[in-house]
Structure formats: structure tokens, C-alpha cells
Amino acid sequence: MLTIKNLHAQIEDNQILRGINLEVKPGEVHAIMGPNGSGKSTLASVLAGREDYEVTDGEVIFEGKDLLDLAPEERAREGVFLAFQYPVEIPGVSSTNFLKTAVNQIREHKGLDPLDAVSFLKLIKEKMKLVEIDQSLLSRSLNEGFSGGEKKRNEIFQMAVLDPKLAILDETDSGLDIDALRIVANGVNQLKRADNAVIVVTHYQRLLDYIIPDFVHVLYQGRIVKSGDKSLALELEDKGYDWIKDEVGSLV
């Protein structure tokens, strides 16, 4: 589904990604962990198409297409979804109208007719239950005045509505209390199918108690320096990141 080869990216003159290689197949859950500043969020942003970053080398193939060639909206229409670490507040834009526009532009891209008001409402109602999101939240402006937890839940709600092939969760656990974390993880798990995939970007192992990864990768200084199964996450939780840094250091 997704193949990342030798990906290099920088912001201004700061080289952040220094050769990422990653293969994600349908049905898989990958966790990307790493200390602060290792490039985790950069990787998520580059995949979603944030324009602040410049890709200087490497390639990203998604479902046979060169992802880096596509505008952010085209990536979304092809089935890439980024759950933001810090979802932006957009006053004056109603959550519902925004989602309807998104759903219908994605449908148009797929050659489907737009959803009418009734079908759209039905879809929304169904997905709302999944993340236990309240109707009143959706009648407000997008993310405006939402608590941290509400913003994150809204991200997963949008993911549920847009039904992507590949979801990238960028530090979705940060700022969540344990109840909110469970709700969010539960939502993600219910959306999991054999034909879609999830990349969970996180600093802590906590979220991975609920969303069980098939693979865990450790990102350090812009490279994946270690990969393993879920036990690697537990080891990191136990020992911290210093031993990874030491290991990498001893190789140089």
C-alpha cells in the first residue's frame, strides 16, 4: 500500500528526515516511536503534504502513485488521512458543512454522486457513536473552543466519516486522559479492516496498549534505527530511549 524509500526532507535549511525506508501493507498497524525531535511529526506532515517541508531525496509510492507529486487534497482523495497533533480552530466554519464538502469532493474524485442531506446525516449519526462525540460539538465552528480531548476525538470522527485507506495518527494520545484515550483507541480499532492500514506516531507506549501494532519502528535523527514487534514498544517504555541513542552512537 505504502512504500517509502530513502526519504529525505528538510525545513528551511534543517535536514530532518535522513533516509526513511518503510513498507506498509493493507491490514497492518505500524507504530513509529522516537524521542522528541527525531522527525516523527515531520514524517507524518510530509506524507500528508504539508508545504513547509521540502523533500530533497527519495520517493513515496502509495497505491502505485507517486504520493509526493500530489497536492494535499489529492492525497486525501486517494485515501490518506492525517489526524493532526494540533488540530487548528477555524471560527465561522461549521463542522458539519466542512465535512459535507470534504465527503462530496472525495466522492466526486471517485466518480460517485454527492450524498444528499439525508444520507449525509445518516452517515454522520452512525460515525458519531463510534467516537462518542456529541451533536452539539458538530453544530459549533470547527474545533473552536474545543478541549484538547474534543479536538482529538473530532479527528478520529472525521477519519471515520472519510474512511481512508491509510490513516496517520500524529501523537493522537498527547493531552488525552485515560477515558478519552480509550474512546479514541476504540474508535480506531473499530475502523480497522483487512484493506486499510494505520500508522501511529507516538512518543509513549500508552496508546499502544489499546491499538496493538504489528510493527514498531524507532525513529532517531531522521532514520528508522530499529524495528520490531509490539514488545519493542514495551522495552522502550521500560528502558526509555537512551539505550537506542547509545546503540546508534556506537555504530558511528
Binding site: 504539508r50 508545504e51 487534497e73 472525521q158
Partner: peptide
């Protein structure tokens, strides 16, 4: 805000109009 809207599949033109 522009990036957020576009990352949901909304064209740059529509995102601009919405904002």
C-alpha cells in the same frame, strides 16, 4: 487552516472560499 481543509480532500479553491 488552509492545509487542514485541504488535508480532508477539499480543493485549495474551495478551502479559500470557505475561509
Amino acid at each position: 487552516q488552509m492545509f487542514y481543509l485541504r488535508s480532508r480532500g477539499i480543493s485549495a479553491e474551495s478551502a479559500r472560499a470557505i475561509l
